[in-house]
Amino acid sequence: MSAGAPLLEVDDLRVSFATEDGLVRAVDGVSFTISPGEVLAIVGESGSGKSVMAMTLMGLTRGPNARIAGRATLGAVELVSASERDLQRIRGASIAMVFQDPMSSLNPVYRIGRQIVEQIRVHDRSVSKQEASARAVELLARVGIPHAERRLQSYPHEFSGGMRQRVMIAMALSCSPRLLIADEPTTALDVTVQAQILEELRVLRQQSDAGIILITHDLAVVADIADRVIVMYAGRVVEHGTLDELFYDPQHPYTWGLLGSITRVDRDTSTMLPAIPGMPPSLLRTPQGCHFRPRCPHAFAKCMDVPELSARAPDAPGHLDRCWLEVEQKRKLRVVGDQIGLASSEPVIS
């Protein structure tokens, strides 16, 4: 983690959407900062609000039905209130994004070269097409695409999935962004290719001091590459800490549940995984108080009030969580057998 001014400062970001069924609170008061050169992982399941949050930073969730509040400051620009024109200048230049599915994220009807050149030239009209093409070749070579010059003329369907994701990364890097948002960048890829792409991101971090927000549901990927982790549940941040804090001293029962739910390739896991019972709540009707309360075996009366996201362990001032339990209690409760997990009082399913 590098010191100095944060790259991006998000403060109480709220996003909700008006639908026919009511107001969907997708992001419910999220705050965090990210420094240059840092990899911040945002972990959560579907409906946790992690993708909506990222899209909001890019101004891509704006629309007649969206209500967006809070602040997100990138350098001198406040992204939530920025004009569409300002956002267009920022998108793809200061903040770039890599998406989950490289199969569908590139326009099938244009050659790869044209799609990269388009991004370079939309941000700097003074670059000629030839210069932009030359830069595209450099970028493709940098992300490990062989015969880059020739591949410029290929269409997306002529690439494999891994190669397409490399193209997406090359495109994202084309304007040397200060912040790269990678939304499940390896989920659709084969494991050997996933390892290559993660390596690519690691190299990128070493070579530039761009901050990376990595959105994922895969804790193994997080353990592989992140510096800090945010765990989101039903629109809220439930825990926020360094990589080691989160894996070895998790404070929120939901984090315990996630850690208990994953199988490991390097060791036997108990036959019955200490899974989290039930399902995440509908964002139309979130439960009162702590959103995790109905699925939490450790819930008690106080959980009807929303716990603040704050540092609760005296030895870790930067480790924040939203759980009313005492730190000592937590350290006892989270142990299930010989691992961290969510103890289940009864099998509650569906």
């Binding site: 494991v191 390892a195 993660l198 804790l219 193994a220 990927v221 353990a223 592989d224 080691d244 490991r264």
Partner: peptide, 11 residues
């Protein structure tokens, strides 16, 4: 294949 898979354990 095994080496490609990260382990959910930072250390």
């Amino acid at each position: 294949l095994l080496a490609s898979i990260p382990i959910p354990d930072p250390k």
